[in-house]
Computed example of a mutant assay.
Amino acid sequence: MKLYYSDTLNPRKACAVARHLKLPVEFIHVALEKGEHRTPQFCAMNPNAKVPVLVDGELVLWESNAIMCHLAEKAGSDLWPRDERRIEVLRWLMWDATEFAPAASTFYFEHIIKPRFLRSEADPAEIARVTPDFERYASVLEAHLKGRDYLVGNALTVADFAVGITLPYAGKTGLPLQAFPEIRRWHAQLDELPAWREPFPALQATAAA
């Protein structure tokens, strides 16, 4: 399997799951700053011109959540459950994509992507605009996490990898987590996973197992 990635937010999910499961994945870095994601060769794999992309034999798969689920299924891992929990995992993946992530990832875009790739500073007005949304949905997550170690079935799943993906950058992005102790506790637990702390392979490396 080949996993095309950059050291940015959504590829972090796929890389973390691949490394956590110790799968025989060849990690191929895509230099966004050089436009490598817009080349005809890359766009033939993903017409959206985005990373990550997983190539597994004849299968070419894009979208980080789908890649996580495929990797977990490939490994026979309960990260993508086979029982009734699967619907609950799917619910949290959808909630993250439509509610939580759009607000949380704006902090990431403003404070990390703009300075790095656009050579511009964060827009305080944009941060102010999304802060109420972030706090609203963080309150939903906070309430759900009370008495739980993980989001679904009290066991680690791809839902945790998805919903928590902006939290490693909380310090750099100024995510307002002060009022959310359960979220901070949950992320501290995720941070005990080596693959969560260090999801990306060294750029000089071409493979990891």
Rank of each mutant, 00 (worst) to 15 (best):
P194E: 02
I112K: 02
L151M: 13
D149K: 15
A209H: 15
W95K: 08
R184N: 06
L190Y: 01
V51P: 04
L61Q: 07
L190H: 09
D123E: 11
T131M: 06
L167V: 07
A101F: 12
F134M: 05
F180I: 06
D123N: 14
T173L: 04
I67Y: 06
N154I: 05
T157F: 13
L79M: 10
T131S: 09
R86L: 14
K114V: 01
C43F: 00
T206K: 10
A122T: 09
E63N: 07
T98F: 15
P24S: 12
E99V: 00
P168M: 12
E33W: 01
T131P: 04
P181H: 06
H111N: 14
S77F: 01
V25L: 14
F134I: 04
W186A: 10
K114H: 06
A179R: 10
R129T: 13
V130K: 12
A14C: 09
F100Q: 13
H70E: 11
R82K: 13
E126G: 00
E73K: 13
G35I: 03
L167T: 06
M68N: 15
N48K: 14
K172W: 00
P168I: 08
D149T: 14
H70R: 15
S139W: 00
V55R: 10
T157V: 05
P11S: 08
D160S: 08
K22G: 14
A49R: 07
V152Y: 12
L79P: 09
R148T: 01
V60M: 01
R184W: 00
A97G: 06
E99H: 11
T166L: 05
E110F: 06
D191Y: 04
I165S: 10
V163C: 13
A170P: 03
P132C: 10
I165H: 05
G57Y: 12
A143H: 11
K50G: 02
P199G: 02
E36G: 03
M68Q: 15
A104P: 03
H29G: 05
N154M: 07
E73V: 07
A207G: 10
P124H: 10
Q204V: 03
E84I: 09
